[in-house]
Design a protein around this nucleic acid. Structure first.
Lengths: 156, 156
DNA sequence: AGCCTGTTGCGAATGCGTCTCAAGAGCATT
DNA sequence: AATGCTCTTGAGACGCATTCGCAACAGGCT
């Protein structure tokens, strides 16, 4: 009945973070598991309230914050000043943001990842985290036939 | 006497943005031209006040904001919640942030840029802007000999 | 020199996120 | 199922970066 993969269970997610399982946190965890986008705190709160209307803003922020610290949640700031969240157990990917519509597509490029490591290493560093975001607009149409010869892509 | 390249003159920068040249804005423009780091609004304000102590916080924010909108200034948010600024006419580069010290190094990789365009194109988009940030920590020492065989690098 | 209009400084306001604290609820135990 | 220790909660105050409102001020074209 639930998703057959990943942190399918909200309670597990919370326990993994070393948190007590409360109604409010269950609601929030559920929202994160069900989310197929990158909701911000306000959206997480609104959706969590559909499961349990008693969830407060403070609890939403606190829970998101703890889950991030524990590494179970990844954060993004595509638009300045609002933080967006996404479960960390999702496969790694970078983001392509349509600046006209705000739509966000995910992609991975093993080749870019490799070059990133190479660059970091050249400076004597190792990568702890990275952020790659492409802010794009729809190109002139009719030229989507390039799509197929790009083996280095995948969607999530 | 001035830098022989780029927007060497603050007045030009302001006029390019379609702004009246005022003492306060001259002070701010000068700060941006002289900056070799990525100052945030507070730092820009403090430095501008060394040139003209009458510069107010509101004017600093307003000027930075207009220059950004006009595309003459690029903004970054390495650490969440504070915006950092950098003149747009600087050669393009990405950033490597030392998570321990906060030090920021700049680099460019033509190869990564190429792959980015390829990916965007594959989805039918063209890149308007991008952001690539590597959050790193110093790797185990003694292995800096990799440094030389990486032709795809340059510092700014 | 004078006028029109863009700019300024001040302080108040906004917005996202965090903190305080007393009341409430997990959950390990009896 | 009752107990109790401790973590968690909701409500509102608070913090901080940034923006706004407005009356006084000052570019810069004539």
């Amino acid at each position: 009945m639930n998703k057959p993969f990943q942190s399918s269970d909200g309670d597990d997610l919370l326990r993994d973070a070393g948190l007590r399982v409360t109604r409010q946190r269950q609601a929030i965890a559920q929202v994160l598991i069900e989310a197929e986008d990158h909701p911000n705190a306000e959206q997480v709160l609104a959706r969590a309230r559909e499961h349990d209307e008693s969830v407060s803003q403070a609890t939403a922020y606190r829970t998101l914050s703890v889950l991030s610290e524990k590494g179970l949640l990844h954060t993004h700031t595509f638009d300045k000043n609002v933080m967006r969240f996404e479960l960390a157990d999702r496969p790694h990917h970078d983001h392509l943001i349509d600046v006209e519509t705000g739509e966000i597509r995910e992609f991975v490029s093993a080749e870019i990842e490799r070059l990133q490591r190479k660059i970091a290493k050249a400076y004597g560093y190792e990568i702890v985290a990275h952020r790659l975001e492409l802010f794009c607009r729809k190109a002139a149409p009719d030229e989507t036939e390039e799509r197929q010869d790009t083996a280095d892509l995948s969607e999530s």
